[in-house]
């Protein structure tokens, strides 16, 4: 696939369709991939890569990129296309300035995931059939590709692109049996006290680095209220742990109905806080109360939380703990 993409990128640069390419750049190791803009064929040859380690969602970069001179080629994975659409819907990306090529994805892995499976001292990795063969400082290790998948890819909702100008490789299918709400159901089954304790435990590890917010395609405000010293709630670190928790709850509310479940927040959290569970709870509730809805699936429909219909659930449901 990488070769196909390289050829395509060069072709589009050459014939002037685009003047730069947004993709993934190889790093020092096999897994430390950085999003990058390539402006020439030499740039592309020097570092462009696409493989099972290219997990970064590139859509958010297009807010800035689409405002620059000329058209940019963006390679988007299926989940990235949902974020792209959502940003179009919110008038954050200028569509005419982006040439979208959908690229297939078989699920991603990353350094942290491999390490969580006990792999130490990663020097390199190659794929062989269903296995990932990892060269380490302490000898060769093998992992089945399934075991190497990141948590978000294990519950991938769709391998189908919802937007593209062109597609490379074969189009994938939606994954109806994705089990992505199973963990949410576990939380729902807890007593309120247990659930409170669960979240206080998880969120107590937060270091307020803001990586989750800054990476999130739904968090695209020009100036976040938490960065505004005049807001009265601006802060780098919280005065107490309750405030820390509130940051996350406010963020979850703000992205409710707009979060496409791309999983970037949990991927980047240096403290491995399962932030996606907050957002998935909202997604699940919206599905239940307002009918199935997937943010980013299209660019036209009205979002349930900004729409009114006579069938809308009554606000009193909040007082009943979300139960109909």
């Amino acid at each position: 696939m990488q070769e196909l993409m390289l050829a395509k990128a060069k072709e589009l640069l050459q014939n002037g369709t685009v003047n730069r390419v947004l993709g993934w750049q190889a790093g020092e190791f096999v897994y430390d991939i950085t999003p990058a803009v390539f402006e020439s064929e030499q740039d592309l040859d020097a570092g462009f890569v696409y493989n099972e380690f290219c997990g970064n969602n590139l859509s958010k970069y297009l807010i800035k990129e689409s405002r620059k001179e000329g058209k940019v080629l963006a390679f988007l994975k299926p989940c990235d296309t949902y974020s792209f659409n959502q940003l179009i819907k919110e008038h954050r990306i200028i569509r005419e300035n982006v040439y979208v090529i959908g690229v297939p994805c078989e699920g991603k892995t990353d350094g942290e995931t491999l390490k969580s499976k006990g792999v130490k001292g990663i020097l390199g990795a190659k794929s062989e059939g269903d296995e990932l063969i990892i060269d380490t400082l302490y000898g060769e290790q093998r992992l089945s590709k399934r075991d190497a998948l990141t948590a978000r890819c294990l519950t991938c909702k769709s391998k189908k692109h919802v937007v593209y100008d062109e597609l490379l490789g074969e189009e994938g299918e939606e994954v109806p049996e994705n089990h992505r709400f199973e963990e949410v159901e576990k939380l729902e089954a807890m007593t309120p006290d247990e659930r409170f304790a669960f979240w206080r435990g998880e969120l107590s590890r937060c270091i307020r680095c803001n990586a989750c917010r800054n990476v999130c395609p739904a968090c695209s405000c020009e100036k976040c209220v938490f960065d505004n010293p005049a807001s009265g709630i601006s802060q780098k670190a919280a005065a107490d742990s309750f405030e820390e928790n509130m940051f996350h709850i406010i963020r979850a509310f703000h992205v409710a109905g707009r979060c496409t479940d791309c999983g970037e927040c949990s991927r980047v959290c240096p403290q491995n806080i399962p932030l996606h569970l907050l957002n998935r709870k909202f997604i699940k509730d919206i599905d239940a109360f307002y009918g199935e809805y997937q943010a980013g699936e299209d660019t036209e429909s009205r979002a349930p939380l900004t729409n009114f219909t006579y069938d809308d659930v009554e606000p009193s449901i909040v007082y009943k703990g979300g139960k109909k």
Partner: peptide, 13 residues
């Protein structure tokens, strides 16, 4: 710095 998110992860860890 092109792709840097301006988060504070590197500084806080």
């Amino acid at each position: 710095s092109e792709a840097c998110l301006g988060c504070g992860t590197c500084t806080f860890v």
